[in-house]
Design a protein around this nucleic acid. Structure first.
Lengths: 334, 334
DNA sequence: TAGGAGTTCTATAACGTTGTAAAAAAGAAG
DNA sequence: CTTCTTTTTTACAACGTTATAGAACTCCTA
């Protein structure tokens, strides 16, 4: 039997509610009474029962995080940082893996998972804005990433286009002219893939270089797909002097494939990625990439979500935030 | 206002408890009644309130997972698999990061976090067995990893010693005679580091090769520490023809450092790791390592924990389980 | 057609908190 | 001292579920 508020009240010789008031920093309590209650709490080792508190107050002090796969390095790092940011503010984060399935993504908006949380950090990859809006409910929801950019939703993201353009300019400045892009998603223009590809095209255009669709290889955002995409280009006889992996694992997969085939990096082909996962620094050669300001993303998305949770009314309009980025020039594309 | 059981009861023309009985698969309910209740549930879109259920039943349907850092690839993969294993059984996992701090590890055993969960999957790195036992409480607790091997606790682990010995034998069979070990923890013999080092020594001994303490480099289990450890050995003029990183990120850091310095891998020095993280397959050269049966670890630790949660009494004796391993021979040490 | 053994259902009381409203105590003003 | 205001404390209900115990049905048997 755990110690309850009632036990504390009895020990301190006050009513149940007075104990509750002390715990909730109610204004009008005599210092002597407060002390007596606190002594009783310390002596009995009382700890508030969160379940009961949640039931009564309707708040759980938990945030939900929906992402496709926690074992992907980018998401693992993001989740870790989000948890720490939330912990600093007295919240806990629970994670739901969607495996990039639409049903799982939409399911996380409702039911058990939603019920357990006061607000959601949501990284949709396949569900569309209308389907999300229809199921969004009234609890706050902050989008992470680029799949859904809709004025109805709050959104914290990165400067995909600008960063991809900056990276492309860097490759061009290094004398590269035929930059292959791997990881494109031909079917979508709004997601991270589309935005980064746009940045790439913009930089080419600004430099007066024609865009060649033959240099763009679609691929799922996994290592093996990155390797396969590069293998495909090589076997098709496509010539290129640089590879831009739309994220780091794609670039690392490509790097691996190039090295296996005896292609010199960066001598013959430069390689660059996007995300600056920990591994990028320690690849051989180390990977040039974009650091998308993950710390800032974590901090601001949790901050925004908690603002919404604390607000009286639901916001009429979504806020869009884009964290700053930084180019990380390393050996693979100096 | 969410739909409650009371609304369902009214709509179906039965009592509150009958609805509860339907939801909990109580045996004695007339099929017609059951149907009526289920229709009402479907029509009203009722969903059980987990908080209220928890308060009344004392069960949360959540498991706790305590680990040092979710952004470390090994832990990220483990967490992902544990969540899936738990989900298959109707449980959710919430993660607490200890940052390898004793206070945080012990803190996770008590207070809020413990309260929210029906049982704990615990990966201690610094806390000692007695301190854990003193705070273990009465809710089930399953240890993961090797830091605490104590008959009082249930434990799911891997075959560290055997696997390290097998890997060492493989290096020896490839003609390597001076195998450097990086990532040792001189202060502890019981943890993963100690067990793997023992396996290494055992294999050397069996092969009649003298152990040379000069080949053993202490290092924190991070990439940069692995790189630094190898750099240290090289700069100290220590000769070696193989590096055994006590985990994969150490080995990958070492691999990186060797390549930067122009040391041929595996030509001059073979490199091997431990864990078989996703990245190991895609390193250049790909990394020879040990796959420690993580799937099996996830499955069995969740299974064991749920057995304990479901059991009438607390077990008198801890059960120790060691998952099988598999050698992954790749390019870095063929 | 009563008696008994099942089966099916229900009223009521918890679980441990917080919110409401009002009572009690203390202080100020006349 | 009263009366009024402000501060402090309290009794009681409520959050939505499950547990207990017993009532009300059904069906069988004698």
């Amino acid at each position: 039997m755990a110690v309850t508020m009632n036990d504390v009240a009895r020990a301190a010789g006050v009513s149940l509610k007075t104990v509750s008031n002390v715990l909730n920093d109610y204004e009008f309590i005599r210092p002597a009474t407060k002390q007596r209650v606190q002594d009783a709490i310390a002596e009995l080792g009382y700890e508030a029962n969160l379940t009961a508190r949640s039931l009564r107050s309707g708040k759980t002090s938990m945030l939900g995080l929906v992402l496709s796969d926690l074992s992907a390095p980018y998401y693992a790092e993001l989740a870790s940082k989000l948890m720490k940011a939330a912990a600093r503010r007295g919240y806990r984060v629970i994670v739901e893996q969607s495996d990039a399935g639409a049903a799982a993504e939409l399911g996380a908006l409702q039911g058990t998972f939603r019920q357990l949380t006061d607000g959601l950090l949501f990284t949709p990859l396949v569900a569309d804005a209308d389907a999300i809006a229809a199921r969004a409910g009234r609890k706050p929801l902050v989008m992470l990433g680029e799949h859904v950019m809709d004025p109805r939703f709050d959104l914290v993201t990165m400067k995909n286009g600008e960063a991809a353009a900056a990276l492309t300019r860097h490759l061009l400045a290094g004398g590269r002219r035929r930059i292959a892009v791997i990881g494109a998603r031909p079917d979508e223009s709004a997601g991270s893939a589309g935005l980064r590809l746009n940045g790439y095209r913009k930089a080419l255009e600004d430099a007066g270089i024609a865009f060649d669709a033959g240099l763009v290889a679609p691929a799922a955002w996994r290592r093996d797909a990155g390797a396969a995409a590069v293998a495909g280009l090589l076997e098709a006889g496509v010539e290129f002097d640089a590879v831009f992996g739309l994220n780091d694992v794609l670039a690392l997969g490509a790097l691996h494939e190039l090295l296996i085939r005896g292609v010199k990096v960066p001598g013959e082909v430069a390689v660059a990625g996007f995300d600056d996962i920990d591994e990028a620094r320690f690849a051989s050669p180390s990977l040039t990439t974009v650091s998308p300001g993950m710390e800032e993303i974590a901090e601001r998305s949790v901050g925004l979500l908690l603002d919404r949770i604390g607000a009286r009314e639901t916001a009429a309009q979504g806020v869009h935030v884009a964290a700053g980025f930084e180019l990380k020039i390393r050996e693979s594309a100096p």
